[in-house]
């Protein structure tokens, strides 16, 4: 199939490249999705005193480790962007792989954490606190997985110096996922 790029894609009346502009709108729409879920959680969390008891069963150490992992992977993502900006494709790809590694670590910690909780009897249907816990973390986790897959594809291109501007776009997305976690962390793990 012919894959010529339309001229529309190449115009930039705003001065922001099209892909990046679209990514900001993606992030905008994600803000309301997570915002709706977390606002719902927050209302119930503030209403039920008993939820702080439930929250005391969450694993703060795992949450903190994951925050550290995501912050570090964000550093790698921005370094990848920096390398791409300088036109160093392979280096950018290397940093992207480190970012993916961070994502994998995050998921491993998450898996260990969930296994522990489920074995203690805290499943998604245990009560509504845990329903929110698994839904919010699960939705966030899906974003992590999605970001890792895209990052893999982009790294594959970046090695050969192709589509280097996408390194920045996926980085933006990754930082956003990081920010969501930055808010999930106190909401779920710290406020008890």
């Amino acid at each position: 199939m012919a894959t010529a790029i339309p001229i529309a894609t190449q115009r930039s009346a705003t001065g922001i490249p099209t892909g990046k502009l679209a990514l900001w709108w993606v992030i905008g729409s994600e803000i309301v999705i997570f915002g709706g879920l977390l606002a719902s959680y927050l209302m119930m969390r503030l209403m039920y005193d008993s939820w702080s008891d439930a929250a005391s069963h969450t694993n703060t150490v795992a949450g903190a480790i994951n925050t550290f992992i995501l912050l570090t992977s964000s550093l790698f993502a921005v370094l990848a962007h920096d390398a791409a900006e300088r036109g160093k494709g392979p280096q950018a790809a290397g940093y992207l792989l480190l970012t993916i590694g961070g994502g994998l670590n995050f998921l491993v910690v998450k898996a260990i954490e969930w296994t522990g909780e489920i074995s203690h009897g805290f499943t998604i249907t245990t009560n509504t606190f845990w329903s929110f816990y698994y839904t919010a973390c699960g939705l966030h986790g899906l974003h992590v997985i999605g970001g890792m897959i895209c990052m893999g594809i982009i790294a594959f291109d970046a090695v050969r110096g192709k589509n280097l501007q996408r390194v920045e776009y996926i980085g933006l997305y990754w930082h956003f996922v990081d920010i969501v976690w930055i808010f999930l962390f106190p909401l779920i793990y710290i406020a008890k």
């Binding site: 790029i5 894609t9 930039s12 291109d157 501007q165």
Partner: peptide
């Protein structure tokens, strides 16, 4: 021509 190069070449 890839989308990437097209957009990235802009330094207008």
């Amino acid at each position: 021509m890839s989308e990437g190069n097209a957009a990235h070449n802009h330094t207008g």
